[in-house]
């Protein structure tokens, strides 16, 4: 029972460990906050230098925090002198993997899927985005420590086996199809609702695509809104 409570508390803390995110050590304080009770329970005493290293610079994707923690704990018991360099190198690797999987793959895919479900199925379809994202986040948090402690440095083999980095390629393709479906749906059921709007929309689509070469995102979005408002103002007067 006590162990169950300790585990529950540990996983609860994983959702708050970024509290002290700052310009000096990023998530270093949070990492130390998560690890200290585990070390105490295992009877591992840290030297003064190791304690300072524990609170030192640390930054990773929040979904991979338990995985990095598991790898660090295994390294600490097996090759203590390299444990902190192992932690930092896996933190960077997991940050890159998180950027690729969560930011570049899952987020755009879930956004477009949620928008598609909202348009075609139900207004509650929009909530699919946070719901599915949270399921993935929780899954990585819950299994991460066990995998990290069991496999240590070999963890990367598991990711290679699941081809986690390539998932983004697949979700990108599905997202492009869904974007086409959403846009055509707007034309079909919009006020204009005629087939003649399809080539016009396609032309504007190509222009938008070409604009990527010369305009930064924020400038592009501001330009297009300003253009629409000013032309509306001129037409109105």
């Amino acid at each position: 029972m006590a162990s169950l409570l300790e585990n529950a508390l540990f996983y609860l803390k994983c959702f708050f460990y970024q509290g002290n995110i700052n310009i000096n050590n990023m998530q270093g304080t949070g990492f130390a906050w998560l690890v200290r009770p585990l070390l105490r329970k295992r009877g591992i005493e840290l030297t003064r230098k190791e304690t300072a290293d524990l609170r030192g610079y640390f930054n990773t994707n929040p979904s991979f925090i338990t995985l990095v923690l598991g790898i660090f704990l295994k390294a600490l018991t097996q090759q203590r002198d390299t444990a902190f360099s192992v932690r930092n190198s896996y933190a960077s690797a997991c940050a890159g993997l998180g950027d690729s999987f969560f930011w570049h793959g899952l987020r755009p895919f879930l956004f477009i899927l949620a928008f598609f479900l909202y348009v075609h199925v139900s207004e509650y379809g929009a909530l699919i985005y946070p719901l599915v994202y949270t399921i993935f986040h929780l899954a990585f948090i819950l299994v991460g420590r066990r995998i990290g402690e069991a496999l240590g440095g070999r963890t990367v083999e598991i990711f290679n086996r699941f081809k986690l980095k390539q998932w983004a390629d697949f979700t990108d393709k599905i997202s492009v199809i869904l974007v086409g479906m959403i846009l055509v749906n707007f034309i079909k059921y919009g006020e204009q609702g005629t087939v003649y709007w399809l080539p016009i929309a396609f032309l504007v689509f190509i222009l938008g695509f070409a604009a990527h070469k010369c305009l930064r995102p924020i400038l592009f979005l501001l330009t297009i809104i300003t253009f629409i408002l000013i032309s509306g103002y001129l037409i109105g007067t």
Partner: peptide
């Protein structure tokens, strides 16, 4: 709205 949406979809691609 269609023009706006088509342009940002193109950029987003």
């Amino acid at each position: 709205l269609i023009v706006f949406l088509a342009a940002i979809c193109g950029y987003f691609m």
